[in-house]
Design a protein around this nucleic acid. Structure first.
Lengths: 237, 237
DNA sequence: TGTCGAAACTATACGGTGTGAAGTTTCGAT
DNA sequence: ATCGAAACTTCACACCGTATAGTTTCGACA
């Protein structure tokens, strides 16, 4: 038991250091953007040598990957929580809550948003698996859940023009969605992705500063977007 | 006259070198992404020293700015040309032509798209004026022209919920739009920006690889988006 | 309790980057 | 023929990621 305690101690220290590295990296990112994430800066902040970090992350990309995982998970948590907090019998309200949570999170963590959705860092290549794809699918799944509730009305308000097949979508995504919504057709998933694109586009333009050159009140535009979305889904109050 | 000839020669050489620098930079970007744009790599390619480039661009950011200007202008030219090539009496066709030109350009020049709309390069800060904002406004203006034609029908199909004012928009943008479309209300410009956001979002997700994790046929999704857009504008065939 | 060995960390080095200052060459204008 | 500006090179500096080798720390076990 002393054994497990001490071994636990080693692992605890290691976990703490790992957490501190990620913490410092996130702080640097928040203050100086994704490019401020340099091993040397992190080490400087921690009173270490840059090479010491290699004991915790094999490469800087691995660290960035870990950060993306954490940040993306935080985003997914935020929108899921907003969804859960809204009244279940008010689909339009849930969509609004979800979307506003998404935007508010992005505006509060612009560097995080860029880290997830932009070029995180020079030459970075995302790995295959990991928490980030999971979080992406959670976001996507949440959106599909919203679309699923609205689908019966939405599909008759504006049926899909393309004939979507299940084979058009990623099996991993479907494996999470289809069990939850057995009656959902492929076109509804396409709708969810389109909605994702709508919100993502406005947010990208805003966060990367392309909207501010044309529009002085992006929040008004976003609210209008949501109003039209709710209406197009046949959920208008 | 010998005077003007020789002075012209100096300037011509200078212009040629400037063009070659940008050319090499664009080639590097196309093959290795925006991050491959390094002064040293350019100089290496040209058989020069990296510092020689400082005679043409005061800083690397200035070079990147020049590239962004060129690339953004090329994009604006492409969509404008597609718009002009489509039949003037077919608003829906013009929208489709515009949007497909946008997407095709982006897919053909992913690095350029990232250069314009993403983090171009570590620590880059866009300057105030220049050709890029002009090109952005051309894109935006083109979109507004599309929205303007559709507005009479579109506004009664789905009127705006927010009350947009002219003061919500950038005066520079309005100065180009309002003279051309005197009867256009602010809400129509908001619609144009929303459409921009829709297309931009799908394209961003696709180009940055976030869509491919969920959807295997992005082009089908894009066509569906356009179909729904045309329908929502009351332009359905 | 003394010793071993693994883990954590440092030191040094290499090649890459942008950029500044100073020196050299080129070449048109007078 | 000469002057001077422009083009270019050389050298230097600080920063980056990362590989290698050496050093310290400290829990585990005889």
């Amino acid at each position: 038991m002393a054994e497990t305690r001490t071994r636990g101690r080693r692992e605890r220290l290691r976990a703490e250091t790992t957490a501190e590295i990620k913490d410092v990296a996130l702080r640097l990112m928040a203050s100086g953007g994704p490019d401020a994430i340099t091993l040397r800066a992190i080490a400087r902040e921690m009173g270490m040598t840059a090479n010491a970090i290699y004991g915790y992350f094999a490469t800087r990309d691995d660290l960035v990957t870990a950060l993306i995982d954490d940040v993306y998970t935080a985003l997914a948590d935020a929108v899921d929580a907003a969804w859960a907090a809204a009244a279940a019998d008010d689909p339009a309200g849930r969509i609004r809550a979800w979307a506003h949570a998404f935007r508010n999170w992005a505006l509060a963590n612009p560097a995080g948003f860029r880290l997830i959705y932009g070029d995180p860092v020079p030459g970075y290549q995302a790995p295959e698996g990991g928490a980030a794809p999971d979080a992406a699918q959670r976001v996507c799944t949440g959106l599909t859940a919203l679309a699923a509730v609205a689908w019966p009305k939405a599909s008759q308000a504006s049926p899909a023009s393309e004939d979507f097949q299940w084979s058009d979508f990623d099996p991993g995504l479907l494996s999470k969605i289809r069990p939850a919504f057995p009656d959902l057709p492929p076109a509804a998933v396409a709708l969810a992705l389109r909605i994702w694109g709508h919100l993502h586009g406005l947010l990208c333009l805003e966060i990367y500063g392309h909207l501010r050159t044309q529009m002085l009140s992006p929040d008004k535009l976003f609210r209008e977007e949501l109003a039209q979305l709710v209406r197009s889904l046949g959920l208008a109050a």
